[in-house]
Simulated scan of single mutants.
Amino acid sequence: MEISIARSRLEEMRADLDRTVSVLMGEHHLVRGGGADPGDAGSNLTEADRNAASVQTALTQRAEVLAALARIDDGSYGRCVDCSSPVPEPRLEARPATARCVPCQAKRDRRRY
């Protein structure tokens, strides 16, 4: 993938994630604010937990995008952060923020479970 296209897509992704986090944080405040009915407390907590998980996911994705932008800046974008092999073009097109080739990502995923 051409670096200028990758940078543009990653910057778009960052902007989208920033908006998502902003919206979710606003909803988090509304949910935590509660309602007048104490019977809603359980559903509010569940909604708040779901919202917090969504915020955390968006922040994790944002960190991955920022790391990919940093790799563009230092010239290592498109190379696996583990083995330095080239990351296949179709993988970069599908996931511009990806940091690893398929075999290294598979190893990492297996270790997490």
Rank of each mutant, 00 (worst) to 15 (best):
L45S: 13
G78H: 09
R112L: 08
R111W: 02
E93F: 08
D37G: 06
A63H: 07
V21A: 03
G42M: 04
R100V: 11
M1A: 07
R50I: 06
A67E: 13
L92F: 13
V31L: 14
D74P: 09
L24Q: 10
G35Y: 04
A94H: 05
D73P: 04
E12Y: 07
A6I: 13
L69Y: 02
R91F: 10
I72K: 14
A41G: 00
G39R: 07
L66A: 10
R62D: 10
D40M: 11
E27R: 12
S84C: 01
N51I: 00
S4F: 07
C83P: 10
D49S: 11
G26E: 12
A58N: 04
E27K: 10
A68Q: 04
M13A: 15
A63Y: 03
D109M: 03
E2G: 05
D49H: 11
T57V: 04
L24T: 03
R19H: 14
E89A: 12
A99H: 12
A67D: 13
C83A: 10
V31H: 00
D18A: 08
E2L: 08
A6C: 12
D82W: 12
R9L: 14
R71S: 07
S22N: 09
R108S: 08
T57K: 05
T60H: 04
D74T: 10
A6Y: 09
E93T: 14
E93V: 13
P90K: 11
G78M: 03
R100C: 04
C80K: 11
D37I: 09
Y113N: 01
D37F: 05
E47P: 00
S54L: 15
A58T: 06
P90A: 11
E64F: 00
L92G: 14
A70T: 11
C104F: 13
G35V: 06
G35Q: 07
K107A: 11
Q61H: 09
A58I: 04
V23Q: 15
A48M: 11
P86A: 13
G39N: 06
S4A: 15
V23F: 07
D109E: 15
E89Y: 08
R100S: 02
G75W: 08
D109F: 03
E47Q: 11
R91S: 10
C80L: 06
E89G: 07
R7N: 01
R108I: 01
A63T: 07
E2S: 05
D16P: 01
E93S: 12
P88T: 12
A106Y: 01
R19E: 15
A99Y: 02
A106G: 00
E12G: 08
D73Q: 10
V81H: 05
Q56Y: 10
M13N: 09
C101R: 02
A63W: 02
S54N: 12
A48C: 04
A67L: 14
R79E: 11
G34F: 02
Y77V: 10
S22A: 13
C101L: 00
C83T: 14
E64P: 01
P38S: 01
A58E: 04
Y113H: 06
S4W: 06
E64W: 02
A15S: 15
I72M: 06
P86E: 13
V102Y: 01
A52C: 00
R71N: 11
H28V: 00
